[in-house]
Design a protein around this nucleic acid. Structure first.
Lengths: 253, 253
DNA sequence: TAGTGGTCTAGACCACATA
DNA sequence: ATGTGGTCTAGACCACTAG
């Protein structure tokens, strides 16, 4: 692509056409390459100068595109070293999607126990949230997250089966890292952002048993839909959280 | 201030001194002026060119400072018009600090009923969170927020009495706009950011009565501390929310 | 020493709002 | 027509990292 070809002005553009700044176009090209896996999570992308030459724009324009991608946590800039594709493997990224923290004391690494891993037909509501057709298959996971032996969160997770073919109970047994880290390295699907709906509910019999609380106890219910590049939904997650000694932390700006 | 005086390099700076970019210094100066009320909420700040001349730096440097302040929601840029001090009065800013939304249907304006407005000695935990001394006075508010006649949120609010002198039940009676809008226009205190701790609890007798739910019902408990410029805490708020037909909405990036 | 991202500048031009 | 913010460029220099 040439910059001259992409450049548009008020005079050579049809009436009512949208003005798309060059750096936005560069940004799209970069996202496209990220999506295609041209640069893997954790790996460096080409230098600003190299990208400027490749796209036939100035370094400042590439810089502004990368700035926005870094602000969106798709890329990570490291002065003197380069710009890298963000990854869920780094400890820094762990707590971006795990907002439940202890009321007092340190962050303790948690243990995952996978209670279920089945391939099923997508329930209607899940299918709708994942943009799937009625009969499409999903991988259904049930995971119990514990902290120091105390059950803390029971997660039900649904993933499009088409994207997670090799995901089996065997593959999960004993896996302890962040789930999104496994997804990105083993299945090439990287979670970019998520939307959560949070409410308080009374624990049902089954959930109460697994979380070792009395039936009817108040639990935090977190419904999440996660998205990868291009706003494509790729995970539905429903978590029941015990919030007697932990809380969901949020910052408002 | 002159840019030359502010500029520091590795050679003229003592070992281990931090490098502070010019635009960060400009940013601090702008925040300082906002804090001092030199420019009021909703009003325009001087143009980039004018600020560049005043601070003896290039327009690009001022621009970068303003960019960050706009990203932090302290300023709002409007192409062709100018840059304005953000305000809680605009409809756009309403939902930045009100995250409870209906499961279905439109956002309906809510009604506030103020049940309490007293000047009291700060409880120990509140005093600590507001950086007050043991015996300092606070204004205590109790507010019931309803949607279409249905009680939705019961808020207990504590504010430093020193900052909210004229805040009385009379002043609040019948006020319907956003509370933070009142705070900024009437008391000169503008909320910039907040931290929330969210958990699920069982409704106590008193709260249940006011919210018209059965005692023991699960409620969302939102503990908030709000900050103004320079990270000064200026509000403690504890809200009990009915989440049967509403939920707390959050986006993770 | 070389290469990367980070800062700062100066100038040109475009998009948008208002008069 | 004027003034505002928004984009793009080219070049200089600084801060940081690593071989």
């Amino acid at each position: 692509m040439s910059a001259d070809a992409a450049r548009t002005t008020a005079t050579d553009r049809p009436r009512d056409a949208v003005f798309l700044p060059l750096y936005k176009q560069i940004k799209s090209l970069l996202v496209q390459r990220l999506q295609q896996g041209e640069w893997k999570p954790g790996a460096p992308i080409p230098s600003e100068m190299e990208l400027a030459v490749r796209f036939q724009v100035s370094q400042g324009t590439v810089r502004k595109a990368i700035d926005e991608l870094a602000a969106e946590n798709l890329l990570i800039r490291r002065q003197g070293k380069g710009t890298f594709v963000a990854t869920h493997q780094e400890p820094r990224a762990q707590f971006r999607f795990l907002r439940l923290v202890p009321d007092r004391g340190e962050l303790v690494p948690s243990q995952s126990a996978f209670l279920e891993c089945r391939r099923i037909k997508a329930p209607a509501d899940v299918a709708q949230q994942l943009d799937l057709r009625g009969g499409d298959a999903v991988v259904y996971l049930r995971r119990l997250l514990s902290l120091g032996g105390m059950p803390l969160v029971l997660d039900d997770i649904w993933l499009p089966a088409a994207l997670f073919r090799g995901l089996t109970a065997d593959r999960l047994a004993g896996y302890q890292g962040p789930l999104y880290g496994l997804f990105e390295s083993e299945f090439g699907t990287r979670m970019i952002r998520a939307e959560e709906r949070i409410r308080a509910v009374a624990a049902g019999e089954d959930v109460a048993g697994l979380l070792a609380v009395a039936p009817g106890s108040p639990l935090l219910l977190v419904d999440r839909v996660s998205y990868t590049y291009s706003d494509q939904p790729v995970e539905v997650r429903r978590g029941f959280c015990v919030t007697t000694e932990h809380h969901y932390h949020n910052e408002l700006y």
